[in-house]
Amino acid sequence: MITNRQRALRRLRHNPIAVIGGLMVISVILAAIFAPFVAPFPSHAGAVVDFRHRHAPPDALHWMGTDNVGRDILSRVIFGYRVSLTLVAGVLGVAMPFGVILGMAAGYFRGRTEFIIMRLTDIMLAMPPLVMALAITAILTPDLGNAMIAITALWWTWHCRLIYRVTSAIVTEDFIEAARLSGASHTHILLREILPNCMAAISVKTTLDAGFVILFGATLSFLGLGVQPPTPDLGTMVSTGAQFLPDQWWEAVMPGLGVLYAILGFNLLGDGLRDMLDVEIG
């Protein structure tokens, strides 16, 4: 007998791309956690100025070069991952459970509950998310916390819709009615019968979304509405660096590649998980 886990592991071995993605994700997470030890110039994460080394192109000492005030870009990218991952944890930590609960409720209870939740979701989905997040952060003061609030306020709708779709399919299965006939409560059915069947979709979606939250946050700060200097943030670094194009190209391109690396990692891992768990997340 092969267990689910063994089968998943076997599929993983046939899926080197997912393994690469996983390694990329792990490297980003480890770099963020151990930033003070990993970064070559940990002090450059703050408001340090070193005019002797400003605009230095990538070399053996500064692998990604230095910025307009002489700080090591690699060190700032590594510290930037801290900000990005904090954002991911904050947004998905709230939006995912919220969306899952509403989605399951709408799919399971149907009727008026479904109508209210799903029409609200429709309205929220009609707002271009970046535009809304921009508006919200602008009305509040731009900083990491407010960016997190703005993104979370929009992000739950996608999880809600996904889980609603998954749940709607599950409730038509006979085992839900069978559970009800054998005396199971609504809580039991939601948590024990339905939720386990949503886990595959949830884990794939969370992984893919981690990448997109990073992208989203970086875009906000690129437009000047996210994390404020001197906190090292990847989007801010790109937008500052863009002033020195094309001659000091590395100042914009290197942090850009840093964002790309993290998003790519989460995306490859998420795609691999999707193939492995065989879920459709639309």
């Binding site: 863009a242 194009l245 094309p246 790309l260 998003i263």
Partner: peptide, 16 residues
């Protein structure tokens, strides 16, 4: 690559 590259990175690479 198209999906994962942030729009602002693409824009900057195109400018370069």
């Amino acid at each position: 690559l198209g999906v994962v590259t942030p729009g602002f990175v693409v824009a900057i690479l195109l400018q370069l």
